[in-house]
Structures are given as structure tokens and as C-alpha cells.
Amino acid sequence: MELLLALGVGLLTGCGVWLVLASRTFAVILGLTLIGYAVNLLIFFGGRIGAKAPPLALPGATGLADPLPQALVLTAIVIGFGMVAYFVALALRGVGDSGSDAVDLPAAAPDREEGP
């Protein structure tokens, strides 16, 4: 099982990195989402996988899952949405300003210093 989970995280990361390095915005956003999944899972697995019950402190409950990574990941998921939304907006704004969905700015002329 551990190996399977590790492979899952690795697959998400690898494909995410591949996409993030692309030259068009959509692929980069997709890649970021995949990397987000991978990181959330990695942090979540930091609490290990042997738990028998969700972290509800009910009387007599034993074998609870580690609540701390869960709390961290919960906000991370929501913030992940905020980040993706921000990048989508950035991409659309880029389309609006330059008419292209290229990630990189067209090479601008270097700033000129005034001469003597």
C-alpha cells in the first residue's frame, strides 16, 4: 500500500512538473493543480495511514487519525482554489492585454540608461 501511495504522489508530481514547464497558460494552471494535489497528499500522509477512525474525540474512541495534518491540508485545499482562481484571472488578463495565452512576455527592449 505504501508503495502505491508513493507512486500516486510521484505520478501527480511528475505530470504536474511536466505541465508547469509548458509555454501556454492552460497547461501551467493544470500542472499547478496536479502539484497541489500531490503536496496536499504528502502533508496528509505525514500523519501516517494506520488510523482506524476519523479524528473525532468521542468518548471511548481509539486509533484516531492525526488531526493536525488534516487541519493543515484543509485550509491548503481552499487556498489552493484561491491560487488557481488567481492564476486563471492572470491568464485571462494576459489574453486581454496581449491577445496571446503565452506564459512568457514577449522579449521587451532592455531598459535604457541615459547617457552622458
Binding site: V9, T13, V17, W18, A38, F45, R48, D66
Partner: peptide
């Protein structure tokens, strides 16, 4: 890019596997 993606993927998988197979003391 492919090289980097493969490296990152393998690295992430290795870290996850190494972590999952080691005991830890929770602070929870």
C-alpha cells in the same frame, strides 16, 4: 522538461515512501 518531471516525480515518490515506512511521534 521530461528529465526534470521524471526527477521530481521519482523524488516525491521516494520521499513519500520513505516517510510512510518510518515511525513518528505525533504532537496531536
Amino acid at each position: 522538461g521530461a528529465l526534470l518531471a521524471a526527477g521530481a516525480g521519482l523524488g516525491a515518490a521516494a520521499v513519500t515512501f520513505a516517510m510512510l515506512t518510518r515511525p513518528f511521534a505525533t504532537i496531536s
